[in-house]
Amino acid sequence: MRVNVEVNGKQRTADDVWEGESLLYVLRERLGLPGAKNACEQGECGSCTVYLDGVPVCSCLVAAGQTEGRSVRTVEGLADGDKLDPVQAAFVAEGAVQCGFCTPGLIVAAHDLIARTPNPSDAEIREALAGNLCRCTGYEKIMDAVRTAAAAAGGGQ
């Protein structure tokens, strides 16, 4: 089947989509957007997190056909040209990336947190990132990055 969906502000069309296919597969394999990662395909790791109509979801658990006519924003859609989003910049600055597999999902989840809660407490950060697993960093640098990003975004005043 054909799926028409707005991705990162552009109207996109994917053809030959299998009816049971996930949004994650369509993004990575049909639309050339490998930012969202495929790790577990069962909602456990969060590495496939994208915005669907402004709400963070596991793209591995959304049927592609369910996104017809809707809007998706992936990690590729956060930067403004070459200028990284403050959350991305903070992950770089704090060294919150090792293998990087979990990073795109964490960045989308953190981006959403900071948009909703400008000055999050540590408990709020942990809660917001509870659906994102990282096997490398031990999370401390990720916590630092989110605190830094929140401060840069104007929270903490």
Binding site: G43, G46, T49, V55, P56, V57, C58, L61, V62, A109, E127, A128, A130, G131, N132
Partner: peptide, 8 residues
């Protein structure tokens, strides 16, 4: 689940 699961 998690925030992502509760959103869906």
């Amino acid at each position: 689940g998690s925030p992502q699961i509760r959103n869906r």
